[in-house]
Design a protein around this nucleic acid. Structure first.
Lengths: 76, 76
DNA sequence: GCCCATTTGTACGTATGTATG
DNA sequence: GCATACATACGTACAAATGGG
């Protein structure tokens, strides 16, 4: 999954992985993606790193973040 | 009480304090410890920090957490 | 059953300090 | 100096369970 040795920043790698999971349909529109805590565990990353990755997806318009509820895949 | 300047994380300091209050008998078996909100006020900590400390005591088996009711000292 | 207060659970946002390359 | 990464901490918000009236 995540290549700790590779040249790419971990947050970029995670963002790419999540993009793939969205585009493959595994993560569906209007459904939540795993929480920051879950992604942290799942990929063995720090909270800040996960937040950075999600921030990128948000800026790309791929997800919509709702404080206190979760991060959702944008429909379209 | 809590040493804001010290090297130890605040949640570890609070966990240690609560451990002491349990072992001294101030907090008794099958009786609730102060609520998260009370501990927050009492020690001037954020909610997340208090939850982190309680989480540690739970993992140690010192307390039993009941959602909607409170956190209780385990008997024995 | 319904509302309400209390309490714990979960979740995101932000900031800071430290360490590494 | 800067980017990356981790750990800690505070703040805020929404959810769920419990119990009393």
């Amino acid at each position: 999954m995540i290549d700790l040795e590779g040249p790419d920043p971990l947050y970029q790698q995670l963002a790419a992985i999540l993009r793939g999971r969205i585009e493959s349909g595994e993560l569906q529109p209007n459904r939540p993606i795993p929480s920051v805590a879950q992604l942290q565990q799942e990929y063995g990353l720090a909270r800040g790193t996960v937040l950075h990755a999600v921030e990128m997806l948000k800026e790309e318009g791929l997800v919509r973040v709702v404080k206190g509820r979760g991060t959702f895949v944008v429909s379209q």
